[in-house]
Amino acid sequence: MINKNERGFEMKEIDRIVFELLLNSNGRTTDMLESICGDEIKVEVVKQEKKADKIYRESYLYTSFGNFIVSHNFMILYPDHVPVNFYQKVLEEEHVIGNILKADRLISSRNITERGWCLPNQTKDWDGIVKSLKFEPLSTRESIPYKQYDLHFFSTNNTGIKLLEYFNPEIIQYRLQNDPESLNVLERR
């Protein structure tokens, strides 16, 4: 049996490991978030606009069951470097990008350009403007995990999409609160 103090330490360690996997993964982030949350992920587009030859989009992802905000994202899409059908779905349907890639079986490669942790007052968009996120950490001193990466299509070096994702540090707690069996598995160790 694990006592409360040991459980607190173990949970922090488990959180760290899960976020380390999320921040270092070159796979579809949406798939990982759905696995971590145990729920389908949906998107809410805050703003999407075309400037010159780029599409800028600010959105957040949330769980379909609990409406728990999983991440706050900033994207730049380069229309000339993505498949036409994909581009149309992003413009018209506002689906989660990872779900479009999966449904259309699109092959893409990812290049992580930056990852880590930042304080809430350090979260910025692509223009370097400090942004408040849709979710709030429990403390203003609590760090927020983030990942910045490029997606490439057509086996080229041209970036099709640049993504900057800030992840809610409470994702694992959300899962444990909504799936108590997850915590029981830890206690059986």
Rank of each mutant, 00 (worst) to 15 (best):
M1T: 06
I2R: 10
I2Q: 05
N3F: 12
N5L: 08
R7S: 15
R7L: 15
F9G: 03
D15P: 01
V18F: 05
F19H: 08
L21M: 13
L22F: 02
S25N: 10
R28I: 13
T30M: 05
D31E: 10
D31V: 06
L33N: 01
L33A: 13
C37P: 03
C37Q: 06
E40S: 12
K42C: 07
V46W: 01
V46M: 09
V46Q: 07
K47S: 15
E49W: 05
K50H: 04
K54T: 13
Y56I: 13
R57L: 12
S59R: 02
Y62N: 08
H72E: 05
H72R: 06
H72W: 00
F74S: 08
I76M: 11
I76K: 08
L77Q: 01
Y78Q: 08
V84D: 13
F86T: 04
K89C: 10
K89R: 14
K89D: 14
V90I: 14
L91C: 14
H95P: 00
I100F: 01
K102D: 06
K102H: 12
L106H: 01
L106A: 03
S108Y: 12
S108P: 00
S108M: 11
I112F: 05
T113Q: 13
E114D: 13
E114R: 15
E114A: 12
E114F: 11
R115T: 07
W117Y: 15
C118R: 12
C118A: 04
P120L: 10
N121F: 07
N121K: 12
T123F: 00
W126Q: 13
W126V: 04
W126M: 07
S132L: 03
K134Y: 09
E136G: 06
L138N: 14
L138A: 06
T140L: 09
E142M: 04
S143E: 09
P145F: 02
F154N: 13
S155F: 10
I161D: 05
K162N: 11
K162T: 09
L163A: 15
L164I: 00
Y166R: 04
F167N: 09
F167Y: 15
N168Y: 07
N168R: 04
P169E: 02
I171E: 01
Q173W: 06
Y174L: 08
R175C: 03
L176E: 06
D179I: 10
D179Y: 08
D179T: 13
E181D: 11
L183Q: 11
E187R: 02
E187Y: 07
R189L: 07
